[in-house]
Design a protein around this nucleic acid. Structure first.
Ligand SMILES: Nc1ccn([C@H]2C[C@H](O)[C@@H](COP(=O)(O)OP(=O)(O)OP(=O)(O)O)O2)c(=O)n1
Ligand SMILES: [Mn+2]
Length: 908
DNA sequence: CTGGGGACTT
DNA sequence: AAGTCCC
């Protein structure tokens, strides 16, 4: 067998190992940062506590978890889930470092063989202690209990492989218990053990997912050949082994840190002065950390993260350089002014290497670290560095203990083998049952036999698990009744300890349903987008997905048909004619697409007349038009009972819906009402929104007027005359979105005089005109925003109307336009590649219309409200009816419309 | 419109 | 220096 092939022979995966020499404990602090804060401020203990870093709630205590707050949840979402959440800022890790060191210190008082992982995990090799214990205590005389006080060791737990590891397991569990008690005593922190499959992070997992692999079993089963198409043989081998419970990574003693650094993130820093201040602050803090460390740095590294919408986050640029040891003549305890200044100079020098400060820049993070540290030079001796010597140990195997709490299954990788530490496994068990269950295990179809009683074990007393009591996953009474008692089934070197009458085989298969993805971050609500399997929000919530969730199906075809048009004149008078239809000046419609112009939007300024109508006027006008033209909309001429459309609304509503996955921050509400076979949908402005509108800053009005002014230019109006914001020309359109037909009445700006035909049936001869602020092309952020939002908006509006092009006038801050650009509607998506996709917008529109229809038809008499409350939540509610009150805005349809539609008076 | 670290490998 | 893994 070739060495790079996976071993599967009798000595390979399918047989248990023969010698298990080590015993290793694996401790993990409970909700670490939160616990530290609760120890520091005991009054926080019974409150739901979240630890935040900027906009992220990085962890929270179990009170909060029991009420729906998750680790790594966005602050906003956490506050939505639990408004009473008490927040403590955890951006400064100083205290967490201190407690972490203390915890490891307790472990180190037992043995030097302690490996730290992050701030709250420790692997502790207690082989020597266990051996000692075993030597002084005859194997058969070992006192202690694997799974708590109630069950004697001599229970039927068999030695998995005959090497005696069962006894070491028992002894190890005693050490673990003492250690945890000691840690609690010295630091006030409770610990357990917890990990999922190591070595499969977000990158590996996303590749696996593409191969259709998301569970342990699938990884076990996947042909090596298929795996090899994506990974090198080493990785394949490791993945296969790890899926079978074999993890050969040795425990390494953690020496002193190899680097110590600090970071600060922000939404935007773009001046050197600001950068300097930020680095200065970081450096000062870092020197304090350095002082605690005691060693002298010989290399410094600075990092930046530049704003980049495409790469999002995670990409940092770094730059490092050696530091002269002469900077620290007296060690690191007291760093003089000169040394500090020199370090700052070095930092800024490295910074300038990464960022061209002569041009505009936009940073979202800076960091500085000492990435090489040496012990102080002793007088008369040679310089020598003492990096923690990590002598690799002989590889041994890791077991996964799989248990079952009656509800869900989980898989516990114990640290490198021999640990055989069932006690810690149980703690893991308890932990997972409270908050890791959803993303790390799968529900089994049937509940299995309950197995353990942790309530009455020492485990319970040692651990602070308030939420344990509330957890619906709590392990219930001990019952290993039926049949054979616990069985230990060696399967592919996974040892399954099962307390059940079922065959071990069956269980081992079920255990393989455990999901392998750790998913990197976003463990809780996952960056706006929650675990899709969990629906905590109920039937009345439409959960917004990622854009990719709407990408699958091809875009929906939508034939368009103009069924009529109408005008609104300067007095807001409604007319069934084309009096205000305008034509675009041919001089602006060049084929090249770009035109140089010189337009002053401020001409005739004093003569402009503002918009005097109300927001709901446009719907009212449409309803008026429908009453007058209902014959064009009915499907059969004998007994008109319904208009031949599913939805009637303004284009604005559909536009908002189509932006849902991308305009994550856009808040809105709409109301819908069912009447005679059709759903009427209108934008709903809350009282607060109306109030805010009143105090719109003047520049908003100016921009609006400029828009009209630009239209005036484009349609050949006299620039020295004022514009009239009241004038509108609207076309009534029928659009088919998936299976839903919608009636819209978008305003159209003007027609191409060369293409226009009197009896136009669609808007292919029309042109949209937009006035938009000139984009600063040196500002990547603004360019991306333009492509992501403006181009999207224009595409949607034109797509819904069937208008083939938009001519954009780019204005300066002062209202001057020097260039026009033509965009063909169908080419807009290409210009915005990677930022939005037509199929996504069309699919979300279709699925949300379906949601509206479903909700409205559940109560066809009621007025329904749909409100986007957060990036991921659009909530449906029924608006309480207000009898007799003059609450015009509460209703969707005016009474006169209800009375007149299909009534005889309409037939004249 | 996005924590704050750190270790190891390439 | 960047990427991947981990908390
Ligand atoms: N992506 C992450 C993961 C963890 N941590 C920090 C916050 C945690 O408090 C600490 C320990 O990580 P754990 O995954 O062990 O989480 P907790 O200890 O908070 O919770 P649990 O009780 O589930 O162990 O590390 C972090 O800042 N960022
Ligand atoms: Mn933890």
């Amino acid at each position: 067998m070739k060495s790079d092939e996976l071993e599967c022979g009798s000595e390979g995966l399918l047989s248990p190992p023969h010698t298990h020499q080590r015993t290793v404990l694996h401790l993990d602090a409970d909700c670490f940062y939160a616990q530290v804060e609760m120890v520091r401020q005991p009054e926080l203990r019974d409150k739901p506590l979240g630890i935040k870093q900027k906009n992220l709630v990085v962890t929270c205590n179990y009170v909060a978890r029991s009420q729906g707050v998750k680790k790594c949840m966005w602050l906003k979402e956490a506050m939505e889930v639990l408004p009473e959440l008490v927040l403590v800022d955890g951006s400064d890790l100083t205290h967490y470092r201190r407690f972490s060191t203390q915890i490891s210190g307790v472990a180190q008082s037992l043995t030097h063989r302690v490996e730290r992982l992050g701030l709250d995990e420790n692997f502790i090799d207690v082989t020597d202690l266990v051996d000692e214990y075993m030597n002084t205590t005859g194997s058969s005389d070992i006192e202690g209990h694997v799974f708590g006080d109630k069950e004697p060791v001599s229970m039927d737990l068999v030695d998995p492989c005959g090497c005696g590891c069962r006894d070491r397991l028992v002894a190890g569990s005693l050490v673990a218990k003492q250690l945890r008690e000691q840690i609690l005593k010295e630091t006030g922190i409770t610990v357990c053990a917890a990990r999922s499959i190591p070595g499969i992070g977000s990158a590996t997992f996303s590749v696996l997912k593409d191969l259709g692999i998301s569970t342990v079993q699938e990884l076990q089963d996947v042909p090596l050949k298929l795996l090899r198409t994506k990974f090198d043989s080493k990785t394949c081998n490791r993945l296969k082994k790890v899926s079978n419970g074999i993890d050969e990574t040795p425990v390494r003693k953690s020496g002193k840190a190899q680097s110590v650094g600090l970071e600060d993130s922000f939404t935007k820093v773009n001046s050197v002065a600001e950068v300097k201040v930020k680095y200065q602050i970081l450096l000062e803090r870092l020197l304090k950390l350095l002082k605690e460390d005691g060693r002298v740095p010989v290399s410094i590294r600075v990092s930046v993260r530049k704003f980049d919408l495409a790469k999002r986050f995670g990409h940092r640029e770094t730059c490092q350089t050696p530091i002269s040891s002469s900077l620290f003549p007296d060690g690191v305890n007291n760093v003089g002014e000169n040394a500090r200044a020199s370090l700052m100079k070095t930092v800024m020098g490295l910074f300038q290497k990464m960022v061209d400060t002569s041009k505009d820049f936009h940073l979202t993070l800076i960091g500085v670290a000492f990435n090489k540290l040496i012990e102080r030079v002793r007088e008369g001796k040679n310089i020598s560095s003492f990096f923690g010597k990590h002598t690799k140990e002989k590889t041994t195997e890791t077991y996964k203990y799989t248990m079952d709490n009656g509800c869900k299954r989980l898989c516990v990788p114990l640290s490198p083998e021999k640990s055989c530490d069932g006690y810690e496994s149980i703690r893991e068990f308890e932990q997972i049952s409270m908050d890791k269950l959803n993303d790390k295990t799968l529900l089994t179809s049937e509940p299995l036999d309950p197995i353990l009683d942790l309530e009455s074990t020492d485990c319970r007393r040692v651990d602070n698990t308030e939420a344990h009591h509330q957890s619906k996953y709590r392990i219930s009474t001990l019952s290993r009744s039926k049949g054979s008692g616990p069985t230990v089934v060696p399967k592919s070197k996974i040892i399954l300890i099962l307390f059940s009458s079922r065959s071990g085989r069956e269980h081992s298969l079920k255990a393989q349903h455990i999901e392998i993805g750790r998913g990197g971050r976003g463990r809780g609500a996952s960056n706006f987008y929650h675990d899709r399997r969990v629906d905590d929000y109920g039937e009345d919530v439409f959960r917004v997905g990622r854009p990719s969730d709407y990408r699958q199906d091809p875009p929906i075809v939508q034939p368009l048909r103009v069924v009529g048009c109408y005008s609104v004149d300067e007095d807001r008078t409604f007319g069934h004619d084309r009096t205000v239809l305008k034509f675009i000046e041919p001089q602006y419609l060049t084929k090249e697409g770009k035109t140089k112009v010189n337009i002053d939007l401020n001409r005739g300024w004093g003569k402009n007349s503002p918009y005097t109508g109300l927001a709901e006027d446009s719907s009212i006008n449409l309803y008026q038009w429908i009453l007058n033209n209902s014959e064009t909309l009915i499907d059969s001429d004998d007994t008109p009972t319904r208009l031949d459309v599913d939805f009637i609304c303004m284009r604005r509503c559909l536009t908002l819906l189509m932006k849902i996955p991308y305009n994550v921050k856009e808040k809105w509400a709409m109301q819908a009402e069912y009447f005679r076979g059709t759903i009427y949908l209108v934008y709903y402005a809350s009282p607060e929104e109306l109030e805010q509108k009143k105090s719109d800053p003047p520049y908003m009005k100016k921009i609006s007027i400029w828009g009209h002014k630009f239209e005036q230019f484009m349609t050949g109006g006299d620039p020295d005359e004022g514009v009239c914001a009241n004038e509108e020309f609207r076309c009534v359109l029928k659009v088919k979105v998936d299976n839903f037909s919608c009636l819209l009445a978008p305003e159209v700006d003007g027609a191409d005089p060369e293409l226009f035909e009197e009896d136009f049936k669609d808007l292919s001869s029309f042109i949209t005109v937009k006035c938009s602020k000139e984009v600063d092309t040196t500002d990547a952020f603004k360019v991306e925003c333009f492509r992501k939002f403006k181009l999207h908006q224009w595409w949607i509006e034109n797509k819904l109307s069937g208008i083939p092009r938009v001519v954009v006038g780019f204005r300066t801050e002062e209202g001057q336009i020097y260039r026009l650009e033509n965009y063909d509607t169908d080419k807009l998506p290409t210009l915005a590649k990677g930022l939005w996709e037509p199929s996504v917008s069309l699919n979300i529109l279709s699925s949300f219309l379906a949601f509206i229809k479903k909700k409205v038809m559940e109560a066809p008499e009621a007025v329904h409200r749909f409100e986007r409350q957060s990036p991921i939540v659009i909530r449906h509610s029924i608006v309480p009816s207000v009898r007799g009150a003059a609450e015009g805005s509460i209703k969707v349809l005016p009474d006169w419309y209800r009375e007149q539609l299909f009534s005889p008076s309409d037939q004249e």
